[in-house]
Write a protein that binds this DNA or RNA. Structure first.
Lengths: 154, 154
DNA sequence: AAATGTCGTCAGGTTACCTTACGGTTTCGC
DNA sequence: GCGAAACCGTAAGGTAACCTGACGACATTT
């Protein structure tokens, strides 16, 4: 019988935030760092939401509808992101030769360069963060999150 | 020299989403489940953003400005959330006897009940998710995220 | 060649924040 | 004590990042 009778004031305390708070903070931290690195590399006009495009656009290009599905958002919303990135010169849209209705969204040369920066920055951040943790913990973090998001558990 | 020359197409592929994607998915999954449980318990009018209040409001009540700081948002934004929850009957504001400028935001009886549901749901979800992972992994997930968000690494 | 379905856009919300400005209180320095 | 500075909360207005509904252009099916 300890004194800690789990009377649990708020959902979480300032000292011990709950899992949701921890997840948002980690995510925000990661994206802030990532955007800093984009900016430092000369791509200061990239915004948080553009990640939805960069994160799911394959080098070979992809249709808007498919891209939206991957990013788990509506085609309308993705359409706006793509239009925005197009006007900034990161992606372009060309007619799909195989289907008159469709167009293929793909990186421009500039977009590919930015993407490369992003890939490196993410790898680098993961490495740096991993060094501040006990050995193997970063790999376990990834694995744990993959399992949880795969299962879509209870 | 493997075949995997890290030509890394997009920031991440559909099969191997990057850390940021994993973090958002886990977070979204968690909050969706949490809101489902609130709804099932009769608190269907609670929205995602209300978490900013529930997550940081102590039983003893707190000033708006302090609450906003804890949740890391502006007092204006927090003010709107609190006003909303007040009109829904979850919190109330009373004059701070110690300071004429300030008012204390605190749970109503209804709010305290909802908070209790939330505390339990989070504990339960963490437990259920933990069962689908190797032993000790959920605890490690928390610990790892705490370390990362504490440090605000690199 | 008509019905039906898919691709993307247009129009018009909503949510969840933010900045600037300000009107009341308290506290602090003198 | 008394003006200056600091703090508490609100008001007003804006923006980013989504969403739904409707539709016109093209494809596929039958």
């Amino acid at each position: 019988m300890t004194d800690v009778k789990t009377r649990a004031g708020a959902l979480s305390t300032r000292e011990h935030p709950h899992l949701g708070v921890l997840l948002s903070r980690a995510q925000r931290l990661l994206y802030d760092r990532l955007l800093e690195r984009f900016a430092a590399a000369g791509f200061a006009d990239l915004r948080y939401a553009h990640g939805g495009v960069f994160s799911f656009l394959p080098e070979s290009g992809i249709r808007l509808t498919a891209l939206a599905e991957r990013a788990r958002m509506t085609k309308q919303s993705m359409g706006e992101l793509v239009r925005d990135l197009e006007s900034l010169g990161y992606v372009e849209r060309r007619q799909d030769p195989a289907d008159g209705r469709a167009r293929i969204v793909a990186f421009t040369a500039k977009g590919a360069r930015a993407n490369e920066i992003g890939v490196r920055a993410l790898r680098n951040l993961e490495f740096e963060w991993g060094r501040q943790l006990a050995s193997g913990r970063m790999a376990q973090l990834r694995a744990t999150l993959e399992t949880l998001t795969d299962v879509g558990a209870t």
